[in-house]
Design a binder for these strands. Sequence first.
DNA 1: CTCTGATGAGAAAACGCTCCCTGAGAACCG
DNA 2: CGGTTCTCAGGGAGCGTTTTCTCATCAGAG
Lengths: 330, 330
Amino acid sequence: MKRPTLEVVAARAGVSKSSVSRVINGETTVAPQIRDVVMRAVHELGYVPNGAARNLVTRRTDTLAVVVSDPPQGVVSDDPLFSAVVRAVSRELEAAGKRLVLMLAESDQSRTRVEQYVAGGHVDGVMLVALHGTDPLPAALARQGLPLVSFNRTSAQDVPYVALDNAGGAALAVNHLLQRGRRRIAAITGPLDLYEARERLDGYRQTLRDTGRRSIVALGDFTRASGAEAMRQLLEDDPDLDAVFAANDLMAIGALRTLHQAGRRVPEDVAVVGFDDIEAASYTSPALTSVRSPMADQATAAVHLLLRLIEGGPTDPVIMPNELVVREST
Amino acid sequence: MKRPTLEVVAARAGVSKSSVSRVINGETTVAPQIRDVVMRAVHELGYVPNGAARNLVTRRTDTLAVVVSDPPQGVVSDDPLFSAVVRAVSRELEAAGKRLVLMLAESDQSRTRVEQYVAGGHVDGVMLVALHGTDPLPAALARQGLPLVSFNRTSAQDVPYVALDNAGGAALAVNHLLQRGRRRIAAITGPLDLYEARERLDGYRQTLRDTGRRSIVALGDFTRASGAEAMRQLLEDDPDLDAVFAANDLMAIGALRTLHQAGRRVPEDVAVVGFDDIEAASYTSPALTSVRSPMADQATAAVHLLLRLIEGGPTDPVIMPNELVVREST
DNA sequence: CTCTGATGAGAAAACGCTCCCTGAGAACCG
DNA sequence: CGGTTCTCAGGGAGCGTTTTCTCATCAGAG
């Protein structure tokens, strides 16, 4: 079961270790004849280079870490975002011939372990998904001096990032509601220590302000239940509202349910817009109008940014556009 | 930016490399006094052991691979399953102090790369998620002689696995429908080259056979659209049916839509049961009754099985129980 | 026929760590 | 008090690669 080493291959092919190494790494300065005899030996023995030995001398690992920093009950690792991101990243790295180490940092202890791991030279670069403005990890990783990109805007300075146009997306949603003739447009916001939530709220507020209207805001925490509760609150505060913008789809789905229970028709009495356009948005009845967050594209862009960074290329931030998907709820 | 090595730490502490190594690895045969002086040097220098060098000599990496083998449009990597599994595995490995390398094998080329990677000694073990009966990867990986477990039943011999009781779950669903007084119970099945689909169909068939009833089956491919189409087919074939068992929730959701369009009331005219109990199952109206697949628990069990295997422990297959979650659709 | 410059192969030195082995000194025993 | 055992630190040999440097060979120029 012991795997053959470079030395064994060399002996079998009747050449030196150096030559085998050169062939394996595709160097051009090797005679075709030697190439062939080496390749034959490689195949016969089923030789595969030992990763650790190679890493040790080259200082490269062809492995990148994706760090998702989030409390256990956190929003980042919720299905839609998490899965789309991980899958897109994985595909992109596969295409680039790199490997993916996935690390969830859900506690201070695990954050420390992430730092240790990164410091241990196990990876060539890090892609960070951390939505909390107060998260200390971005800055800590930045200090390590390894290539680092953030999946979104971050508190740490000088960390290249890819960002969604959250404010713009919210504006898109609100303008759509205005165009539909809605006058009293309420919002259900997410936890305000998250960039996403803050920026979406800002976009909503700004758009209403620009048209001389008043904001009506209820606070949610990005869960369906909180959306339902926030909707109850809103109906109580302002029974005449005729539209709701929810900062994500889960809360919008919760709001739909409350509206249904309260006997309001959607969209006739109250129009509802969500944000993210998750899979479930198209399953509800009425199907939910939503601002599409191109998570997968964003992840792909972040990977490219990281790969460029590793190669020493330019690292300008990337802003992803978003679009409104109009369905039955507006 | 160059990180300190063991040698530098040893020099600083005024001891030998061996002693520093012993301290780092928590060996007990070292005097408290030496321990302290070494620890101080470690902290002062911010020393972190180089992973590659350590791997090279110990032959361990504390890293496990999770390989998801599936065509690009495949079902495995669909949100609910994928995300739950990856997250559960990640948490479990984190708790065990191991790292996770995630590999999606979506083509023959990437399957080869997986084999190479595993052969390169980068990981201590592999957890495989491969649902296709014809997938060659399980056998190929088994041949490598590395600890290997499968997330589900697999075609390769002697690979320890964790499995869902798919047939039992289907029986649960069908019996529930019978208890509700349903007489003509149809099924929408998934692609039959998947274990999941085959076993669920078998469970459905067997249960009906046991009670002397006829099966009515339409073929889907685990997508929502195919569920809708299969439901149309079923209504045409047997307009009198009063219940449907769908082999997964997405198809059940598609079926709900078709039934709604056809003017059948759920559950009054037709009862519907899904399988998996994905998040979206509770968002539909009427909310979907479904057989809960404990994906996260299954993943956790698979990780434990793999860890046991690595330590040389017993490797009996594990069968996960499932339960019926009754909602409005039955 | 000698000299120069390419070309390409081999020898050997790292890379940073673990772990076996040796030996110094302390502890214990008769 | 000599001998044996025990404890614990240090020396140094690897682990399997890459890579630098040296050197042999050969073609072509003078």
